[in-house]
């Protein structure tokens, strides 16, 4: 169901991972992504797996949620997997039929890329599981704020992201509600060919758009009523502060990154 989409879904908790400074956590996620892309072999990815599992265990988020975060991107994984499988022709030929050729190189790349994408999604999902969207955009705003000198609208972008993230669950809920309402009127969303299904979505998308615009208008009005006029001179309720644990986490992450680089140089698998 539509509720399975978990991006931007915060899982409240009090673990070490939850309490990390969001700016540091964002940095760690970037380092983790770098780690995955630097890794040229399966051993390197293995280090990434260990790092991810460690982070998940520390966060106290059930591992089930990790798998759940992968679910929406399964089609992308399959798609890239098929492309890699058929279009990379290096190594020995395993199977040949007319123009289709499957090689060991293709197979290896397919598995490697799929693992990389899955690790990528799980890691970034952990960030959103353990960081509330508001804190996250706060961190982004702080990271981008030096760019204000060149008139980069850091606050506005952060505000837009906060609002967008804030409304994802609302819109999902709304979609669910509209779907239920149209199903109650006999809408058939699950059968038929692609065109019939696309057409069946019209009664859901139109009310959804209408309500999104209505919400946007109401929100803008409500913000203006509370004298919102952009970021100038705004102070914050919660100041971000780094603690020793942030530096420890950073050190551990750098250690893992170093391990991946070392493996790249000395081991070729």
């Amino acid at each position: 169901m539509i509720k399975d989409i978990t991006i931007g879904q915060y899982f409240p908790g009090k673990s070490v991972v939850h309490r990390l400074d969001p700016r540091v956590k964002l940095g760690l996620t970037v380092l983790y992504i770098v780690m995955l892309f630097v890794a040229s072999g399966f051993l390197g990815l293995g280090v990434g797996v260990i790092y991810l599992l460690l982070a998940f265990l520390l966060s106290g988020i059930p591992l089930k949620m990790m798998l759940k975060s992968v679910k929406p991107i399964v089609p992308i994984i399959i798609f890239t997997g098929i492309l890699n499988l058929f279009f990379i022709s290096s190594g020995e030929i395993l199977f040949e039929w007319h123009f289709i050729k499957i090689t060991t190189g293709g197979l290896r790349t397919m598995i490697f890329m799929a693992s990389r994408i899955i690790l990528l999604i799980c890691g970034t999902a952990l960030l959103t599981y353990t960081t509330s969207p508001i804190t996250l955009t706060d961190a982004i705003e702080r990271i981008l704020s030096p760019l204000k000198i060149i008139h980069f609208p850091a606050h506005e972008i952060a505000m837009m992201m906060t609002i967008a993230l804030r409304f994802i669950p609302t819109l999902i809920e709304e979609t669910d509600k509209i779907m239920s309402a149209q199903k109650a009127r006999g809408a058939d969303l699950d059968t038929g060919n692609v065109f019939q299904r696309a057409k069946a979505l019209v009664p859901i998308l139109i009310p959804l758009f209408v309500s999104a615009f209505r919400r946007a208008e109401e929100l803008a009005l409500a913000m203006e009523c509370r004298c919102y006029h952009g970021g100038d001179g705004r102070t914050r309720l919660k100041q971000l502060k780094t603690a020793p644990r942030d530096y420890i986490a950073l050190a551990v992450t750098l250690l893992f990154l170093a391990a991946v680089i070392v493996l790249n140089i000395f081991v070729k698998i």
Binding site: K177, A181, Q182, A184, P203, I206, P207, V210
Partner: peptide, 17 residues
Amino acid sequence: IRFKVGLVFQYPEYQLF
């Protein structure tokens, strides 16, 4: 069965399209 049991949701006007 859905045709047998008609359900009007809260704020049903939001489902008009």
